[in-house]
C-alpha cells in the first residue's frame, strides 16, 4: 500500500460535473513524490477533467461543479489555497503546444516576471536552466529573441515544458502532450520527462497506451468517469485486476 509519508497529492471522493454531465465519479487516487503517474483511458473518460481539477483550471468553466477534496502536501487546494498559488506549484503542459505570441526568451520569462522577478541576469539564468532541462537549449540558444511561433511543433512543446519549469513548480501535469507530435519529437519530450524525474512529480495523461508503458512508473486507468484501477505499470500491463483494463490495453476497445 501507499506509504503516507511520500504521498504528494491525494484526491478523495472526487466528483466533477459539467452542467448535467457527471464526468468524474467518486475518484480516490494518490500521487507519490517524484513519480511519473500515467493516466490512460479512452476519450471522454474523465482524464483531462481530473488533471484540470489538480490545478483548479476547471474553475475557468462556469458550468463546472465539484465535490470531494484534493490535498497537496496535506493542504486542501480548494479550501486552503489560492488558485494562483496552486497553479504555480502544480503546472500544466497542454495537448497542443501553446507558445504565447512573443519571443522564446519572453515565453520563458513570462511566468517568473509575473511572479515578481525583474532582474535581467536572473531571468536569463532561469531561461537557460529551464531550456536545458527541457532539452531545447542547444536548438534555440542562438535565437532566444526570435518568435516562439516559428519553432517546430516538437520544439514548441518543449518550450512549453521549459516555460512551465521556469515558475519552479513541484508537480507537472501533462495533458496528452505528444498528441500532435511526430515520433522523434515525442521521444525527445519523453526523454525530458525522465530527466525531470529527479526533481518533480509528474502526471501524464495520454491515450497512447504504449507511451504510458514507456514512461509511467504507475498507471491509472479511467473509464467513463470512473477510476477502474491504479497500480504499478508492470502490474497493469502484465496482470491487471480488472477485465476492462485488460481489454483496453490489448486494444479491444478505445
Amino acid at each position: 500500500m501507499v506509504n503516507p509519508g511520500t504521498e504528494k497529492i491525494v484526491a478523495e471522493d472526487l466528483n466533477i460535473y459539467y452542467g448535467p454531465l457527471h464526468v468524474l465519479k467518486n475518484v480516490t487516487l494518490s500521487v507519490r513524490n517524484h513519480e511519473i503517474l500515467g493516466i490512460i483511458g479512452p476519450a471522454n473518460s474523465g482524464k483531462t477533467s481530473f488533471l484540470k481539477a489538480l490545478n483548479r483550471l476547471n474553475d475557468l468553466n462556469p458550468n463546472c461543479r465539484m465535490s470531494g477534496s484534493i490535498r497537496i502536501d496535506g493542504k486542501d487546494i480548494n479550501r486552503e489555497m489560492d488558485a494562483e498559488d496552486i497553479r504555480k506549484r502544480v503546472a500544466m503542459v497542454f495537448a497542443l503546444p501553446l507558445p504565447l505570441p512573443m519571443s522564446i526568451f519572453d515565453n520563458i520569462a513570462y511566468g517568473p516576471r509575473r511572479h515578481g522577478i525583474k532582474n535581467r541576469k536572473e531571468l536569463e539564468r532561469i531561461a537557460e536552466k529551464s531550456l536545458r532541462s527541457a532539452f531545447l537549449w542547444d536548438e534555440v540558444k542562438d535565437r532566444l529573441t526570435g518568435s516562439a511561433m516559428k519553432l517546430s511543433g516538437g520544439q514548441q512543446q518543449r518550450l512549453c515544458i521549459a516555460r512551465t519549469l521556469a515558475v519552479d513548480p513541484e508537480v507537472i501535469l501533462y495533458d496528452e502532450p505528444c498528441s500532435g507530435l511526430d515520433p522523434i519529437s515525442t521521444a525527445k519530450v519523453e526523454e525530458a520527462m525522465f530527466e525531470l524525474k529527479a526533481r518533480y512529480t509528474q502526471i501524464l495523461v495520454t491515450n497512447n497506451v504504449k507511451q504510458a508503458a514507456r514512461v509511467g512508473e504507475r498507471v491509472a486507468f479511467f473509464l467513463m468517469g470512473e477510476l477502474v484501477e491504479a497500480d504499478d505499470a508492470k502490474k497493469i500491463f502484465t496482470a491487471p485486476n480488472d477485465k476492462r483494463t485488460e481489454d483496453y490495453i490489448t486494444g479491444r476497445f478505445g
Partner: peptide
C-alpha cells in the same frame, strides 16, 4: 489558459 496555468493571476 496557458498564462493562468503558470499561476499568473
Amino acid at each position: 489558459e496557458a498564462s493562468l496555468a503558470l499561476g499568473v493571476s
